[in-house]
Design a protein around this nucleic acid. Structure first.
Lengths: 232, 232
DNA sequence: TTAATAAAGTGAACACTGTTCACTTTTCGA
DNA sequence: TCGAAAAGTGAACAGTGTTCACTTTATTAA
């Protein structure tokens, strides 16, 4: 949290920033605990002791406010993964850590993670977005997240751990899908992860298990002769 | 659709059933196109030419009505997968078909699928559900879905395709997570699947690709007993 | 310091939502 | 045919996001 406000700004903008932040903080607090259903403009206004209409001097709509919450969360999520990806670890451990960190951070704030993937575009919207190319996508926050994965795959391939015949982009999509699915399954179906009848195990262990399975799916296959090129 | 009404019933209950069905049909129509945001009691009432309060003679709440929609969809989804799972196919093809069918059916009705996994239980609720055991879970609709997967895994292990050291329940969770994640990624991020820069390919092909990757992750390892993690 | 201007904040209203309830109308069995 | 049960209704309640004319406060220029 950066709770300090730059002194090279006029008091007005500093005050404004403070109020804006207090709104976001209240929203964050309520949303983390109760999700979107508990988050109303009137409730936020009450929490920060302003009138409901005051909120609209700081945010164009509830939607905009929520968007900012989600964006901030996604940035935190990716920062976590980036930090882990930069660690000096054995490739297997690093890849596994990326997945487990992603899932753990997602599950930590279930409402945030679920909300970050909640909008369902209409067919027209979907078609329109098809038109923006790789360069455009890679600059969105989700695109940045994806690039980390593609890099990971290419690294794995260079080290001879992952199958070189797989297209890195497709492999990255596969990893993301698998991680995304586990996170959401744990969020929406908490019955599952620690489920019997196998002996009870801490949740984290299953995440690591899943991550290993995912990596195994991308590993060089048994039969295919792998050219023993030294890793770069 | 069973649009015929049993004649061994009094006209009253038949009429009632018809009205009830018309509500559900209208709800289905609206929900499929616009999702929950477009579905209001007043709108439903308008569509079937009744007053809003009439709906409450047939459904206790909007929540209940929605629950029925979701349940019906999930049943259709599982019926599709069951049908494919019962096909007389080579194991690989059968396993792949289960995943691709699951994902395809989910993506066909994005709002339904997303809604079926939309509730986020509080920590207390989650803890409460932890207490119901395998026998209870296996009898829910989601439990039934899961059992199909466990059977598939056990079949694969029996045939020597899947790694026998993996616990079937954990492996099944892994498959579900991967399939679930792909379905939701396609629903919420339609930018991704057909994304460049790799040569454009029909969406379906990526689903099959992903399914194969997932299967490869569960296959018997090359020769050396894999390091740590996956085999424990 | 004062006057003019811009920003911040407010309360009432609008149009919407799910839901309830007293009420009327219709249906159906005794 | 009568009476009870079921079906259906309209108005209302409490809640939602949002707008807008309005007042109050703060900032800037003269």
């Amino acid at each position: 949290m950066d709770t300090d406000y730059p002194s090279d700004q006029t008091p007005a903008v500093r005050r404004r920033q403070k109020v804006r932040d207090s709104i976001l903080a209240a929203a964050e607090r309520v949303f983390a605990k109760e999700g979107e259903s508990g988050l109303s403009i009137r409730r936020l206004a009450e929490e920060i002791d302003y009138s409901p209409s005051a909120i609209y001097k700081y945010f164009g709509s509830k939607e905009e406010l929520l968007e900012e919450l989600k964006e901030a969360f996604f940035d935190r999520l990716m920062a976590q993964v980036d930090r882990v990806a930069a660690l000096n670890l054995d490739f297997h451990d690093r890849a596994r850590a990326c997945v487990t960190t992603y899932v753990a951070t997602a599950v930590e704030r279930p409402h945030h993670y679920a909300a970050a993937f909640s909008s369902i575009p209409t067919v027209e919207e979907a078609a329109a977005r098809q038109n923006l190319g790789w360069e455009d996508f890679i600059q969105t926050s989700k695109g940045q997240a994806f690039k980390v994965l593609v890099d990971l795959v290419e690294d794995g391939q260079a080290r001879g751990v992952f199958d070189r015949t797989l297209e890195p982009v497709k492999a990255a999509k596969s990893i993301w899908a698998s991680s995304h699915g586990l996170a959401l399954l744990m969020i929406h179906m908490p019955v599952l992860p620690d489920m019997q009848p196998c002996e009870a195990q801490p949740t984290g262990d299953f995440v690591a298990f899943h991550a290993d399975i995912v990596m195994r799916g991308l590993a060089v296959p048994a039969s295919t002769p792998q050219q023993n090129g030294a890793s770069t």
